[in-house]
Computed example of a mutant assay.
Amino acid sequence: MRAENKQCDAVLMGGKTYEVGLNVGVTNPYPSLKQYVFSRTMEASPDENIQLVSDNPVALVQELKKETGKDIWLCGGGALAVTLFSEIYEMIVKLNPLVIGAGIHLFSGAIEPTNLELADRKIYSNGFMLLHYRVKH
């Protein structure tokens, strides 16, 4: 993503999600956003634009929410999504009409049953869908 994001100005990624790009040489996947990678195993950031965070993701998100700015995007990491679920107020689910058989889980652990309210949707001619949900904690 090279263009300015109109909705978000920060992105959060789990270490495994970040490593998908890193393994093919992408060290700065979202240059227009503040980027935070949560990892307990990475010792140093491979890029000056990536801030490594090793503990307490909830506290960081709560601090980011106090700052003036746009939304925060949780790009991935099933474990990170479970940890931060209490802080998530909107989910945008991208549904691609392709079955690949493996991937990174949306949530890689148990969360309490939670109602979602469909707020918006966009369906493209190729079958790709963007589903916007409000999380009802």
Score class of each variant (00 low, 15 high):
M1S: 14
R2I: 03
R2K: 12
A3C: 02
A3H: 09
E4T: 11
E4H: 09
E4Y: 06
N5M: 03
K6S: 10
Q7Y: 07
C8D: 04
C8Q: 02
D9G: 01
D9T: 00
V11K: 02
V11E: 00
L12I: 02
M13Y: 08
M13F: 02
G15Y: 04
G15V: 05
K16T: 13
K16W: 04
T17I: 14
T17S: 08
Y18C: 05
E19H: 12
V20G: 08
G21F: 03
G21R: 07
N23D: 03
N23C: 00
V24Q: 06
V26R: 07
V26S: 15
V26N: 12
N28C: 12
N28E: 12
P29I: 00
Y30I: 00
P31M: 11
S32G: 15
L33F: 02
Q35V: 04
F38H: 00
R40N: 07
R40Q: 04
R40L: 00
T41C: 05
T41A: 10
M42D: 01
A44G: 06
S45D: 11
S45P: 07
P46E: 15
D47F: 03
D47P: 04
E48T: 11
E48I: 05
I50H: 03
Q51S: 07
V53E: 03
V53D: 05
D55A: 10
D55E: 14
D55S: 13
N56V: 05
P57F: 02
P57Y: 01
V58W: 04
V58I: 15
A59G: 05
A59Q: 12
V61W: 08
Q62S: 11
Q62D: 14
E63G: 04
K65Y: 01
E67I: 00
E67M: 03
T68Y: 01
K70T: 07
K70P: 03
K70G: 04
I72Q: 01
W73A: 07
L74S: 11
C75M: 11
G76N: 10
G76T: 06
G77W: 01
G78Q: 08
G78H: 06
G78A: 08
A79Q: 07
L80A: 14
V82N: 07
T83V: 03
T83W: 00
L84K: 01
F85I: 03
S86D: 10
S86Q: 07
Y89K: 12
E90L: 12
E90M: 14
M91Y: 10
V93C: 06
V93K: 00
V93M: 12
K94L: 05
L95A: 13
N96Y: 12
P97Q: 13
P97K: 12
L98P: 13
L98A: 15
V99T: 14
I100H: 10
G101T: 13
G101V: 12
G103Q: 14
I104S: 11
H105A: 08
H105S: 08
F107R: 15
S108H: 11
A110D: 15
A110W: 15
I111W: 10
I111T: 15
I111Y: 13
E112A: 11
E112S: 12
T114I: 04
N115R: 13
L116F: 07
L118I: 13
L118C: 09
A119M: 13
D120R: 09
D120P: 04
R121F: 02
R121P: 04
K122F: 06
I123T: 15
I123W: 06
S125P: 02
G127V: 06
F128G: 02
F128Q: 10
F128A: 04
Y133V: 05
V135Q: 07
K136N: 14
H137Y: 08
